[in-house]
């Protein structure tokens, strides 16, 4: 890139845009993110990366390392990780990608970026105490009885109300629509 009398057309940034990587590294699970050497072992192992064009775990870690906070937090990509942890098992530098993406999701949710399906499911479990109350009909009850299983599932609904009050305020989970 030769220096000329006027400014170079593309400014090369020599520092990360923000301290996002330190923010991630401060959370449990994110500690070793700065060990990443961008070798691509994770992406090669990732089933999602192998079946999509948009998702590359290595690139997401790269974006975090160069400080692209807004881009990463508002993206749906961190929510595509299946937490299968094949990448974590294989990473030779000890980077825990699925945990890093969990930390990213946690921060993203707090700042109002959460895909609709996650928001809806969380609200549902807050309300009912478990996920499938609405799907547990007479048919399923009969199935259980015919198998000799107790049709009364005994789920506790009260505790989730405490969880909701403590961690999510009085309103159901707020969040922007994703995608």
């Amino acid at each position: 890139m030769s220096e000329t009398a006027h400014e170079p057309r593309n400014k090369i940034a020599h520092e990360p845009k923000s301290t996002f990587s330190q923010e991630i590294a401060a959370q449990p699970g994110g500690e070793y993110i700065r060990k990443c050497i961008q070798c691509g072992l994770c992406t090669a192992s990732c089933m999602v990366a192998n079946y999509t064009d948009k998702y590359r775990p290595r690139k997401m870690v790269q974006k975090i390392l160069i400080g692209e906070r807004e881009e990463v937090l508002s993206s749906e990509l961190p929510w595509l990780c299946m937490t299968c942890r094949l990448c974590e098992e294989r990473c030779q530098e000890g980077v825990s990608l699925a945990e890093i993406f969990h930390v990213v999701r946690d921060i993203a949710a707090r700042e109002g970026h959460i895909p609709k399906v996650f928001k809806d499911t969380v609200n549902l479990v807050m309300k009912d105490g478990w996920l499938l109350k609405g799907s547990y009909t007479d048919f399923e009850q009969d199935d259980r009885t015919s198998l000799g299983l107790d049709p009364d599932l005994n789920w506790n609904e009260e505790f989730m109300k405490k969880v909701k009050a403590r961690y999510f305020g009085k309103e159901p989970v707020e969040g922007g629509e994703q995608e």
């Binding site: 691509g40 090669a44 290595r58 030779q92």
Partner: peptide, 27 residues
């Protein structure tokens, strides 16, 4: 791109090596 996995294709007897070409971001 570090090699992640080596698989055998039993039909052809050839080996398949999974890696991401990090320069093009293509696994």
């Amino acid at each position: 791109g570090r090699a992640a996995e080596i698989i055998e294709d039993v039909r052809t007897g050839k080996l398949h090596l999974r890696a991401e070409d990090t320069e093009t971001a293509q696994p």
